[in-house]
Amino acid sequence: MFRKLAACTVMALLLAVSALAHGTATHFMGTVTAVDKDTVTIKDKAGKAVVVTLGKATKYLKDKKPAPAADLKVGTRVVIDARMDQKTKKYAAEEIQLGVVETAPRK
């Protein structure tokens, strides 16, 4: 009886945990409008500017293969996998997929 009760309690707790475990991972798609050592600014497809912080842990990929951070340039189409940093309340880039470089700025 006690075992059943304990098992049910643990199950309920695990379910509650998974239901409440809100992640904050976000994908941003856009074109780089500015980049410096610590941040990248993109203009997303709706024309909204989004600033994401860069860090040592940020990974850069091109065609799904590791790429140098220097490949992140103004005009590059990117998909950024970011996570909200709870301390700074800013999005921190975990992975940046690099695409084609646009010759003319997006309108």
């Binding site: 991972a25 976000t26 994908h27 941003f28 497809k45 709706a46 695409g99 084609v100």
Partner: peptide, 25 residues
């Protein structure tokens, strides 16, 4: 579907915009 949308965007295609950012739970 989302991955395909990203792939096409990175390749330079301009599909109609859907959700710009996708938050995952």
């Amino acid at each position: 579907k989302e991955e395909e949308e990203m792939r096409r965007f990175l390749e330079g295609h301009d599909d109609p915009p859907s959700n710009e950012s996708k938050k995952h739970h």
